[in-house]
């Protein structure tokens, strides 16, 4: 568990970049009427097979006997936060088909961490010029969309300009 949900998103988003993702979609959905907050990260990275995924969720990324070191705790931390705040946690992943992490929690749960600085998180993840990082944010009826590739010249147009 981390101080802000944005730090969970940053942590898991960095995994997507490390997994070679070219597109990372982050969705944050708040529904006050139903009292849900849903966070979803979907990437097109290398994905994981069932065994690797289970190892990650069971903290067995390092299978050495005795003291475990340098294990990735990002997914385990978000799972703990979700379950502590009355929600659910799910990871879907297949080799070559990317990974989708979905975490829900009660919006009004007293232990729910604040969303925090989502702007910094998305900006940090967007530092890689070759990855399209998208944020879909919905709070009841209000929506906001960001793509790190917006406004950037598309590849074909650049080629046309080069030909002129």
């Amino acid at each position: 568990m981390l101080e802000e949900l944005s730090l969970h998103i940053l942590d898991i988003g960095m995994n997507s970049l490390a997994a070679g993702a070219r597109k990372l979609e982050v969705a944050v959905i708040e529904n006050t009427k139903r009292d849900w907050l849903i966070i979803r990260l979907r990437d097109d990275g290398q994905g994981m097979d069932a065994e690797t995924l289970q190892d990650v969720l069971d903290h067995r990324a390092s299978s050495k006997k005795g003291r475990k070191k340098n294990i990735g705790l990002g997914l385990a931390f978000l799972q703990q936060t979700s379950e502590m705040c009355g929600g659910t946690f799910h990871v879907a992943s297949r080799p070559g088909q990317g990974t989708t992490v979905t975490a829900s929690m009660r919006l009004s749960h007293i232990d729910r961490p604040p969303l925090g600085n989502i702007n910094s998180t998305i900006l940090t993840l967007s530092a890689r010029a070759d990855v399209d990082v998208q944020l879909h944010y919905r709070s009841d009826d209000q929506t906001f969309h960001f793509s790190s590739q917006e406004g950037k010249p598309h590849e074909p147009r650049r080629t046309q300009e080069a030909q002129r």
């Binding site: 070191k69 340098n70 294990i71 385990a76």
Partner: peptide
Amino acid sequence: NVISVACT
């Protein structure tokens, strides 16, 4: 997770 953090 406490155990994993303690190990780390």
